[in-house]
């Protein structure tokens, strides 16, 4: 396998000017300013192989979008090196731009007031896509994404789901080997999310496109990526298989029981009630210390159970626990 993205000791400092207010402040800030240095990205290294699909995640302000901006050539790093498909993005931004597709979930890159098809035609010109390739791609995307139902509708009138479909198709029009997706499912309903994920999976598999995905929706990561890079405070805290994290932090299960009576006080060894609603109780337990059947047995000795389920931990709650509990306990970053 060939690494398509190589990031080594990447750093980015921002000098943040102390905000001066008012006209005088704005004028003064033209001449002299006081700065605070903020290290948005401290020292991040990773490589991504061709055809990989990687979740790049971290809390807000962790340095995610700063990294992406350096990979796309929008920002110049303050240290370290980046190589995207053999090109240094900030030195050769325009050439790099042809190798990448970018989708910002929150902002469209389409022409707001024009029928959707016109945006595709303009992007064809901007990226100099040949007629045959354009026709082929449009046919494929129309097929998978159902673009034809809204191609003549102005972008501003599209639903969010439609707009995202159009946006992702637009980003792939010039056959980029690499695709950056920033929150591609944000705000979508369940069905639209599912459609989007299927499409991403498909193009990754069929066209061997390398995908870097930043998202807050852990389901995206779970369903799409094998590997995730987790960053916090500008540093990489984990890089490896998702299943490893899940095993390590996924020992806490939830048992949900419906009892016949309400207002019971359940005293359980190895389990803890953390929520109750009417006669439904949610119980946390660590599966290394106690098994679900032992817990159930404890409960049935004093109460009658009408119904029960055991909930698998969602990666979402795992991640939030990692953030809460710190990263010391994380397994050593393993390369996949």
């Amino acid at each position: 396998m060939v690494p398509i993205i190589e990031v080594e000791h990447l750093m980015k400092d921002f000098k943040i000017a102390k905000r001066e207010t008012g006209f005088a402040g704005a004028i003064r800030s033209l001449v002299k300013r006081e700065f605070i240095t903020k290290e948005a990205v401290k020292d991040i290294s990773f490589t991504i192989e061709e055809g990989e699909m990687v979740g790049y995640i971290g809390p807000n302000g962790a340095g995610k979008s700063t990294t992406i901006k350096m990979l796309t050539g929008i920002l110049v790093p303050s240290g370290g090196s980046v190589r995207v498909n053999g090109i240094i993005p900030y030195e050769n931004r325009q050439k790099n731009a042809k190798n990448i597709g970018v989708v910002f979930g929150q902002r469209t890159q389409l022409w707001w007031d024009l029928p959707t098809i016109e945006s595709f035609e303009l992007l064809k010109e901007i990226y100099q896509v040949s007629n045959e390739r354009y026709e082929e791609n449009m046919a494929t995307f129309t097929d998978i994404l159902g673009l034809d139902e809204f191609l003549d509708t102005p972008v501003r009138q599209l639903s969010l789901g439609q707009r995202m479909r159009a946006d992702i198709a637009a980003s792939l029009l010039h056959d980029p080997p690499i695709l950056f997706l920033d929150e591609p499912t944000i705000g979508l309903d369940v069905v639209a999310k599912e459609k989007m994920r299927t499409f991403i999976k498909e193009i990754n598999k069929e066209r061997n496109i390398t995908v870097i995905l930043t998202t807050h929706d852990m389901e995206d990561i779970e369903k799409l990526c094998k590997r995730m890079v987790l960053i916090d405070h500008g540093q990489k805290v984990y890089d490896g298989e998702i299943s490893v994290v899940k095993d390590r932090f996924g020992k806490i299960r939830t048992l949900v029981v419906d009892l016949e009576e309400s207002d019971c006080i359940l005293q359980l060894s190895g389990g803890k009630v953390f929520k109750e609603e009417g006669n439904r109780y949610w119980i946390h337990f660590n599966r290394d210390e106690v098994s679900a059947s032992e817990l159930i047995a404890q409960i049935t000795s004093t109460h009658n159970i009408k119904d029960l389920t055991v909930e698998e931990p969602e990666i979402e709650s795992i991640i939030s626990r990692i953030y809460q509990e710190g990263f010391q306990d994380l397994p050593n970053p393993v390369k996949v």
Binding site: I100, F104, Q109, Y127
Partner: peptide, 9 residues
């Protein structure tokens, strides 16, 4: 930023 991810000036 959208003007900066495209291959033109």
């Amino acid at each position: 930023d959208r003007f900066l991810v495209r291959p033109i000036n």
